[in-house]
Design a protein around this nucleic acid. Structure first.
Lengths: 109, 109
DNA sequence: TCATTAATTCGATTATAATCGAACAAACGA
DNA sequence: TCGTTTGTTCGATTATAATCGAATTAATGA
């Protein structure tokens, strides 16, 4: 568990990114990261067993959506915003905006 | 099979749309529709058994990505561009652009 | 009415993914 | 070195989805 795999920017695949972001829990993770910036895995406000969260972090990381930085016993995760923007311009912005739009329409009900 | 279910614009869910578009075959369908406009199911240039394609059309339709218009024994499908743009501005554009970008980087290899 | 065309649905199989407890690993501080 | 913290990996289970042949439906035209 010394190094964690992160795909090269140019190897990030659209279908893989879309798949990674099609899960509600993973979308919550991303929304949280977008709002609060880099987070330790444990400070993310999402209730699920550790092993489940770890699984989702892995899916996000291996798809190229997030970066995991190791610091001591902690891992700090953040969105690979620049890389994603370079590879698929406008995609992440639209998705984050979509998340907010969805939240608003839900609140109105 | 008189009427086919299409979600209302405001009921279109981001995670569902992303999921629908995370499959390579479905992305090909969308790319084809974006390039060629409305198509009959049978004129789409994608080689897979009819029942498999029908399944993918259903996923795309029920997620709100495409519209299916019945005309005689044929069904004409098209992207719900206006609806998607209204619900998630910039999303589809970014995805279509991403598909083209991916194609170019593939060609370079 | 009967064959044809175009596509859906059924049903079975296979593949892939989510979930989560338990065991494990790595870094750190006392 | 030993416990603590933080997170990963394993492994089993369950859930969801993809695939596709065969049967079915629905519209149409001869």
């Amino acid at each position: 568990m010394r190094t964690l795999y992160h795909p090269n920017v140019h190897d990030i695949q659209l279908s893989t990114v879309l798949y990674a972001l099609s899960d509600p829990i993973r979308l919550r993770i991303i929304r949280n990261l977008a709002e609060c910036g880099e987070q330790s895995c444990s400070t993310l406000d999402i209730s699920a067993p550790k092993s489940t969260l770890s699984h989702h972090f892995k899916v996000l990381r291996e798809s190229g959506v997030i970066n995991t930085r190791i610091e001591g016993t902690q891992r700090f995760i953040s969105i690979r915003y620049t890389d994603l923007e370079a590879r698929f311009p406008g995609l992440l912005t639209a998705i984050l905006q979509g998340l907010r739009a969805e939240e608003h329409s839900k609140a109105k009900k």
